[in-house]
């Protein structure tokens, strides 16, 4: 598709809004009593991401995990550095396909469980190519 340009607008540079030099309050009198209690602002990145080098975001398609609060189009925060444990929600690679499921590890048996009655659990056979791509640590769901 060719984008057609009807009109090119040039910016109006005739008016300048320069900051006047003397607007800041002159520091005299008592300093703010709160200055000592100043802390960093809350940073969602720090809250959600413990290990930036190993953290990836992925987008969910489908509804197989709605029971776990994971919906279509949600954003998942994945930390690859975490060792997957029984009952973790993980991104797994099964025969080359990426899938988000709850992992069940019982002795040597691994099962991937959906959280939606319309889907069935998948037991991983010994000879299936299987790998945990990363552990899901948070869901970001837009309302």
């Amino acid at each position: 598709m060719v984008t057609e340009v009807k009109k090119v607008h040039t910016p109006d540079l005739s008016v300048k809004h320069l900051q006047s030099l003397f607007v800041a309050a002159v520091p005299a009198g008592f300093p703010s009593p709160a200055a000592d209690y100043e802390e960093d602002k809350l940073d969602l990145n720090k809250h959600l991401i413990k290990n930036p080098a190993a953290t990836f975001f992925v987008r969910v398609t489908g509804d197989s995990m709605v029971g776990a609060g994971i919906h279509h189009e949600d954003l998942l925060v994945i930390d690859r550095s975490i060792e997957p444990k029984d009952k973790n929600v993980v991104i797994a690679v099964v025969a080359g396909e990426l899938t988000v499921k709850r992992i069940r590890i019982k002795s040597r048996k691994i099962t991937l469980e959906p959280e939606n009655l319309n889907y069935s659990a998948q037991e991983i056979a010994e000879d299936t190519e299987f790998e945990v791509w990363g552990v899901v640590t948070s869901v970001i769901h837009k309302l």
Partner: peptide
Amino acid sequence: RYTTRWDELLKVT
């Protein structure tokens, strides 16, 4: 560009 673009993230089902 899986790691730098919100609209090109990896998709999982």
